[in-house]
Simulated assay, not measured.
Amino acid sequence: MSHPWQPQPPQYGQQPQYGQPPQQPGYGYPGPGPNMAPYPPQQPMPHGYPYAPGFPPPGGAQPGRAFFLGLIISMGLGLAYAGILFAAHEDLSRVGLQVSYLACAAVLAVVVGVVTGRTGGREAGPAVWAAVLAALGAYLGVANGYVFTLLDIGGTDLLETMLDNEPMAPHKFWWKRVDAGFALAGLAVAMVGAFAVNRAVSKKQPH
Rank of each mutant, 00 (worst) to 15 (best):
D91G: 09
H89I: 06
L79R: 04
A169D: 03
G54Y: 07
R118W: 03
V197L: 13
Q20F: 08
G48I: 09
A130K: 06
G31V: 00
Y29E: 11
P7V: 07
P38Y: 01
R122C: 07
Y51Q: 06
T161P: 04
G54Q: 08
V189D: 02
H47N: 14
A66R: 12
Y29W: 10
G141A: 03
R177S: 10
A131W: 08
G155E: 05
G48P: 06
A106W: 00
Y39H: 13
A52V: 14
A135W: 09
R94M: 11
V128T: 12
A109P: 01
A183I: 10
Y49C: 05
V107I: 15
T149A: 04
Y146M: 08
L184W: 14
T161G: 08
A105N: 14
T149V: 14
G113W: 12
G28M: 12
H207T: 07
G193T: 07
M36Y: 01
M75K: 08
E123A: 13
P22A: 05
G13F: 03
I72V: 15
V114F: 02
L77M: 15
V142I: 15
L136W: 04
M162D: 06
H171P: 00
G70D: 01
Y81M: 02
R118L: 14
A138D: 04
P16Y: 00
Q62L: 12
P21H: 03
F148P: 01
L163H: 05
P9R: 12
A135S: 12
L184S: 06
I153Q: 06
P4K: 10
A88N: 07
F148S: 01
Q23Y: 13
A134N: 11
D91L: 08
T116N: 09
G186F: 03
D152P: 05
S100Q: 10
K203D: 10
P4W: 11
P41E: 15
A88V: 13
P7S: 12
F67R: 09
D179G: 14
W174K: 03
D152G: 04
